[in-house]
């Protein structure tokens, strides 16, 4: 692994984290910490609450997330986030873009021969 591997992974994730956040909230609404935990358990271990919370804020201000305050059985009331109709449209759109982009990159990599022997 090259020394800049973590930076490179962070760069790759930066453009797709919002898609992951929308997908996770489409699966189940939740509050910010719970969402960060779910993303980490799903495989994004290096994505912290400190990254997810500002992302949720951006998506909410863009009208893609709805914020609802709900009582919690174990403590104070919490903000629970879910997708708006615009958020669902964005998720469909971004998912299509992601699939097309990864397909394009994979096609290029296959054509150069470096993909061979990677087990894909």
């Amino acid at each position: 692994m090259t020394p800049d591997a973590p930076d490179r992974r962070a760069q790759l994730l930066r453009g797709s984290l919002d898609l992951c956040v929308l997908a996770a909230l489409a699966q189940q609404p939740g509050h910010a910490y719970e969402l960060a935990t779910r993303l980490a358990e799903a495989g994004l271990r290096d994505v912290s609450y400190g990254t997810v919370y500002p992302m949720i804020t951006r998506l909410r201000r863009s009208g893609l997330l709805h914020e609802q305050t709900e009582a919690s059985p174990v403590g104070p009331e919490r903000k629970v986030f879910s997708l708006t109709a615009a958020g669902r449209d964005a998720l469909d759109d971004w998912l299509g873009q992601w699939q097309q982009a990864t397909l394009d990159v994979e096609t290029v990599l296959r054509s150069t021969g470096v993909w061979a022997g990677r087990g894909a």
Partner: peptide, 9 residues
């Protein structure tokens, strides 16, 4: 909101 999240953690 942040305090509630950190409290959870």
């Amino acid at each position: 909101d942040v305090a509630a999240d950190l409290h959870d953690a």
